[in-house]
Structure formats: structure tokens, C-alpha cells
Amino acid sequence: MSLPRRWVVAVKHGIDVNLTRADPTTGRIDLARAPRKTSDFDKNAVEEAVRLREKHGGTVTVVTVGPATAREAIRDALAIGADEGVLLAAPDGPVGDSRAVAGTLAAYFRTPGGAFDLALFGEGSTDHFSGTVGPRVAAELGFPSLSHVRQLTIDGGHLRVHRDIDSGIEELESGFPAVVTVGQEINTPRMPTFLSTLKSSKKEIREIPIDSLGLSASKWTRSIVIQEASVPSVPRKKIRVSGENPSALSHELVELLRREGIDGK
């Protein structure tokens, strides 16, 4: 068995949570116009792939699905150290849902140029956090998926991971090709330097129109319709506890909690 050399990272140009504001009167958020940036955990996936290349050689390809503006996510990954980028160019208009994006990625990975040994995904996107795209791609291709990976090593042509399963940590071993999703615990992505950014601007981004991938039109049609996004309003009393000093503040808080039926134990 040949050693794995083709590392692929799928990234998302998602909504920038920290720059998104709701309409102050309605509490509604206009998702279509929200500012976008590279999804946080995807950078952990890029960092992990770059470390694999540094140790085992090969090429890191970063791929995304979206309109031309999604190139920004590829540029970010190239600045971290990925070697080349692929934009699966979608038409303008509503972005695909997780089914559409996973189907598009899987179709690309089936093409001769898209084959990989290991594909890495963030374990969820900062905006939707469904965590479904990586496992979906794996299932479409008939590959194993290893999700929520916290530690990853390659040994003798095998992949070994530690993954989080709520109640504990599982150690799994798998052959290639395989798909992993990683969380932020796995590493700290390096900060691109001025030089790495400059160098990355010369790296190639190939553009492949998604309708050249042989997808049916129904694949790109959204099946999940977001009717409304709004800031959740949990009614809170927002009572500023009064008191001149720590002692007075504490007395007042204890009294307020007592009225709520909460005492010391």
C-alpha cells in the first residue's frame, strides 16, 4: 500500500458571527447580507493537514463550494500553508444547504483530479454547526468517517485517531481513504505572517463550475428553508444588584436569591 500523500481540506466561507447584527427593532437577522469569513474550526483542519504534509510529504489542497467571494476562505487556508486551492464555483443566489454542499464536494472528489487519501473538515461551521457535511461526503463515497478528532497520527499506512464521543475518548484505526472532522482542541492554527500571505497570493486557485460535475439540478436546490433567523429572546430580569461595597452587594444578592427560593445548602 502506498503511503498517503494527498491531503484535502474542505473549508466554508461562512457567516461572521461576531460582525453580524440583528435589526434592533425586530431582532431579525438578514443572513443573505451578513458579512462572511472562514469558519473557525476549518482553520484547525487546515493546520492539521499542513502538519501532516510537513511530516509525511505530499500536497495540501483546499476546496470550497460557493460564489467567487468564497475565494477568501481559500486564500486564508493558503496563507496558513495549504499548497493549492479549488473553488467549486456555484451560481449566484441562495447558497446550497448541507446536502447540496456535501453532494457537490463528493462529486468533485470522484473526478480524477479530486481523489484524496485523507480529507479533513472542521467538526462544524461557526454559523450553522450542523457537523453533517464531512460524514455525508464520507458516506457518499463509501469511506469511513472519523468525527470529532482530538489527536491524529499516521503510522505504517494507517490512520490512528483519538475522538470525542461524549462519554469518553475512543481510539480508532482506519485505512485510507478516510474522512476526519476536527475540533479546536486538536491544535492551534498558526497565524499567517506577512511573508506567508505574500507567498500564498501566488498559489493557484483552480475554478470548476459546479454544473460541470454532472450534478442533477435538484441536488443544488435547497431542501432546508430558513424562514427566519432572529436573536433569541430569553426574558431576563436584568436587575442591577445595588450596594456600595462587596459586602453590601453580597447581602443584597443573597436576599434577592432567597426571594427566588434559593438558599445556601
Partner: peptide
């Protein structure tokens, strides 16, 4: 949605 900043109402 948005890392818990928002609630989305979605239909399938």
C-alpha cells in the same frame, strides 16, 4: 444558528 447568537426557524 451563528454559534448560538441566533435562533433559526427552518422548514423542510
Amino acid at each position: 444558528l451563528l454559534s448560538g447568537n441566533a435562533t433559526g426557524i427552518e422548514s423542510i
